[in-house]
Simulated scan of single mutants.
Amino acid sequence: MRVLVLEDEAELGAEIAGGLRSVGYAVDLVATVADAGFAVSVNEYDCLVLDRMVPDGDGLELVRTLRGHGTSLPVLMLTAMDTVADRVDGLTEGADDYLVKPFAFAELVARVGVLCRRGEQPRPPILYAGGLEIDTARKRVRRDGILLALGAKEFAVLEFLAVRAGQVVSRIDLIEHCWDEQADPMSNVVDAVIAQLRRKLGVPVISTVRGAGYLVEGPAA
């Protein structure tokens, strides 16, 4: 899952981005509405987390623009503008959710998770692929009832592949959805995580399709 965060307070922005990354999200962090608009125009996101009052305007301006173009990308407004009128404004102008600062980080993660899932095709909370039980809500993976210890990035990659079980997923698709814009598409970050996953899973779950990408077989395989 890839999230764009618009936050002009550097320390808070870094805290939000770092926290979301720690639970497996790929996060791009920007400080202006203009940069947020550009990021949305060139990248695919599962959710936007937008502050309102930033140096060059109001994050709600971006929401209006997106909705005006017919974009249904989920949006969470995360702002200190806390009056009822502010919240009503944000929701009626197209935001999907509104969280007031200061906030509990666990609540932010929960709300982002709900919005990311809302943008997907309906699917069960537990996936079965390659002999694994993948609990996408609790971020847990079991093999033969045994809980496996996966890092946040490892889980994100496995989940992305499992959702597309039976389909070949390219390295570029993995980079674009599981890493942020700092990732070098020519680096070996994908190969390194795939290698770590294969080692930890202990069974041949992920196949390499030469010249095309990676494949996880579905439960019937």
Rank of each mutant, 00 (worst) to 15 (best):
L66H: 00
C47E: 08
G13F: 06
S72W: 00
G37L: 00
A26H: 07
P55C: 10
R21M: 14
G19C: 07
L62M: 06
S41A: 13
E11P: 00
E15Q: 13
G19H: 07
V63I: 04
Y25G: 12
D8S: 13
R21G: 11
L78E: 07
L12C: 08
G57A: 05
R67D: 06
A34F: 09
G59N: 10
S72N: 13
L48T: 02
G59P: 03
D28C: 02
T71G: 00
T71F: 05
V27I: 10
A17N: 12
C47V: 05
A34E: 15
V30A: 08
V49Q: 08
V63E: 03
L73S: 00
E44A: 14
L73P: 00
P74M: 02
T71A: 13
P55Y: 07
D51M: 02
P55Q: 08
T32R: 12
V27G: 07
L66I: 00
V49G: 07
S22G: 14
G57Q: 08
R52L: 15
V49T: 09
A10L: 14
L78C: 11
H69F: 12
S41I: 01
G18M: 07
L20T: 10
A31F: 08
A26E: 12
T32C: 12
L29W: 03
A34D: 15
T79Q: 10
G37H: 03
G24L: 04
A14R: 15
L48E: 05
G57F: 10
R64V: 12
L66T: 00
L29F: 04
V75K: 00
Y25K: 04
D51L: 02
S41Q: 05
V27H: 11
L20P: 13
C47D: 08
D35A: 14
L29G: 03
L78P: 10
G59D: 06
L73D: 00
V42P: 10
R64P: 01
S41L: 01
Y25M: 12
M77D: 06
V27Q: 11
A14K: 15
V54P: 11
E11C: 02
E44I: 09
D28Q: 03
G70H: 06
A26S: 08
D46K: 06
Y25L: 04
A17T: 12
V75W: 01
G68I: 01
I16K: 08
